[in-house]
Design a protein around this nucleic acid. Structure first.
Lengths: 153, 153
DNA sequence: CTGATATCATTTGCATACGAATGAATTTGA
DNA sequence: TCAAATTCATTCGTATGCAAATGATATCAG
């Protein structure tokens, strides 16, 4: 190997060639695609509700009435996003809002009877969605994947 | 144990309690959060470009001139989405478009010199973004995670 | 007690993301 | 060859998602 080759190797080690960067191997790009695939699977099972809308209903079913802001924190949506989601669920009669008696800043959100019926009907479908999303993996791989994904999220 | 209890157990085994469904353990919900975290890390390193815009530039840098439609396929964007991304990159002078000489349906897209300079400047930052996104995992965990994530996506 | 700070909700603006419909151009197949 | 099917791009409508600004209310600190 010539001295020139050594110099070249040294330079490459310090500044990797831009063409070594492969978009399709980057975690962000694959994460975006995996998320897209999940949303598509979700839509094929539950056509009349989006994943964020479902998340809001599921969380309200889990914890009961809470403030819009707190709900947003629990389902990882900022204030502007959760407002839109709740507005649409309200327009469809699945949730109802009321003012907090003590703290007048807060907007309380709760399921309506129709919202409760809807989420109870949808949860079995949601189980199937999770199953189908993880279908490319074995049971052991799924467990590993979920553990590592949770560490990232 | 009474006969009533046995009946209850049987019913539960066939139809799991809705309250066993925990949103925060579902792959779709965690995937969404992990994606959000990545986008946030991306924005903290590259403030003037979004991940989809970066993906378009990186892919054009990789493969050279191509049609808008083909580019969309390569970076996992539908036709409507890729049009918006290209429009904004074009408005900023990072890509240029031209008509395909033979197939008049096609819109060819390519990097401008400024676009090429931009992506060459950004790729090192993108490496850092990938690194920071995967920082909660060990090297071995990262490799496992990327392998399983790719199977899902 | 009160001024500074913090919290909750809303609004606006911008950027994906996708379904559906449309129109132009190309390819296919009988 | 020529009608049907396909492909490429655009447009419209709807739904996240987030930054920044605003207003109302509540809390804190001196």
């Amino acid at each position: 190997m010539s001295g020139e080759d050594n110099l070249l190797k040294l330079v490459e080690a310090e500044e990797p060639d831009d063409h070594d960067y492969r978009l399709q191997n980057q975690v962000g790009f694959i994460l975006r695609k995996a998320h897209q695939r999940h949303v598509s699977i979700f839509a094929s099972h539950i056509g009349d509700l989006t994943p964020p809308q479902f998340a809001a209903l599921a969380k309200l079913y889990d914890i009961g009435e809470t403030s819009q802001n707190q709900l947003g924190t629990l389902i990882a949506m900022d204030a502007a996003t959760v407002k839109g989601v709740i507005d649409r669920l309200k327009a469809r009669g699945l949730v109802e809002v009321s003012k907090h008696e003590v703290d007048k800043r807060r907007l309380l959100v709760n399921l309506t009877p129709q919202g409760r019926a809807a989420i109870e009907r949808l949860i079995p479908l949601a189980r199937a969605i999770t199953e189908e999303t993880l279908a490319p993996l074995t049971a052991k791989e799924s467990a590993t994947f979920l553990r590592l994904l949770a560490k990232l999220a």
